Computed example of a mutant assay.
Amino acid sequence: MADEKPRAQRDRKAALLPAILVVSSLSGILAIMAGVLVYLSPPQESENVAASGPDSDRRVQPAVQPMVLPSVGPGGPNAPLAPAEPDAPPPLPAVKAHKPIKTTKKTRPTRITIPKIGVSAPVQPLGLQKSGEIAVPPLSKPHLTGWYRLGPVPGEIGPAVILGHVNTKRGPAVFSRLREIQRGDKIRVARSDGKIVEFTVDGVEQISKSAFPTNRVYGNLNDAGLRLVSCGGVYNRRTGHYSDNIIVYATMSKAGGKSR
């Protein structure tokens, strides 16, 4: 009689075991199905969104970031111009650099020729404005370029800088097609000492005037370089200025001959 009660308990547990197994199996199946449904269902949008207008679908629109390249691009019609990273160096020379040539204090550039874009224009010396910025050629002479006379003469070691307008109220100016230049194109500069120096384009960039790459343009070089600078981007009618600069980087690749 003493073991009848435990035996009865064991019999009841044995009878309940199949039911427990069935319930456990169903719970596992339901858990799996719930997991599958969670996996397949679309993600919920965050509540922290801002509507862009009365017809907004309240989705967060990613901000469009300007393209910034790790180095100055090659330029050309199939390579949209973009700024290089702020600390990027000038582009690598497209050809072997020619040894810089000697000049005197009186030597200056007199004419620049760029066959690719049909430029053949006189060059005048430019200094600084009262603001400390480089002076520019007068708008009354849209086909005149300006050489920064406080920097190197084209052909000397270092970066020589020549500026020109893209257009005026009367129409296209000397550097209206500057953005068409690309790596490998030739630029020739005639000098007052009778020498003609040829430069080969290394790269071109378009960059905001507010982020002008001073070190990349004016920084020291081991060879004779050339920088062409003009305007580009969006024209602001209120201020009368463009938003960007087009900058061409080139390295001297030939020297000699006689200017006409």
Rank of each mutant, 00 (worst) to 15 (best):
M1C: 14
A2E: 06
D3I: 01
E4W: 09
E4P: 00
Q9A: 14
Q9C: 10
D11W: 11
L16N: 13
A19L: 09
V23W: 06
V23Y: 02
A34N: 10
L40Q: 14
S46H: 12
P54W: 02
S56Q: 07
R59M: 10
P62G: 01
Q65G: 00
P66Y: 11
P70I: 04
G73Y: 06
N78Y: 13
P83A: 13
A88L: 02
P89E: 01
L92A: 15
L92G: 05
P93L: 07
A94G: 06
V95P: 06
V95F: 13
K96D: 13
H98D: 06
P100G: 02
P100I: 01
I101R: 11
K105H: 12
K106P: 00
K106L: 08
R108D: 00
P109I: 03
R111I: 00
R111Q: 12
I114C: 14
I114M: 15
P115I: 10
K116I: 05
I117G: 05
I117P: 06
G118C: 04
G118M: 03
G118D: 11
V119A: 11
P122C: 02
P125I: 05
K130E: 15
G132V: 01
E133G: 12
A135S: 15
A135Y: 11
P137Y: 09
K141P: 00
L144C: 06
L144F: 04
G146K: 03
G146P: 06
Y148G: 08
G151Y: 02
P152H: 10
G158Q: 08
H165W: 12
H165E: 13
N167F: 01
N167W: 01
G171I: 00
G171W: 00
P172K: 11
A173I: 00
V174K: 08
V174W: 07
L178N: 05
I181G: 04
Q182D: 05
R183E: 09
G184P: 07
G184R: 03
K186S: 15
I187D: 02
I187Q: 02
R188W: 08
V189D: 03
R191L: 15
R191M: 06
K195I: 00
I196M: 14
V197T: 09
E198G: 15
F199P: 01
V201T: 14
D202Y: 06
V204I: 15
Q206G: 11
I207T: 14
I207L: 07
S208Q: 14
K209C: 06
A211L: 12
A211P: 00
F212D: 04
N215I: 02
R216D: 09
V217Y: 03
Y218F: 14
Y218L: 08
G219F: 07
G219E: 06
G219C: 08
G219H: 08
G225T: 11
S230K: 07
S230M: 08
G232A: 01
G232P: 01
G233F: 04
G233H: 05
V234Y: 13
T239D: 09
T239S: 15
H241K: 15
Y242C: 06
S243G: 01
N245D: 12
Y249R: 09
T251V: 12
K254A: 14
G256T: 04
G257I: 10
K258R: 14
S259E: 12
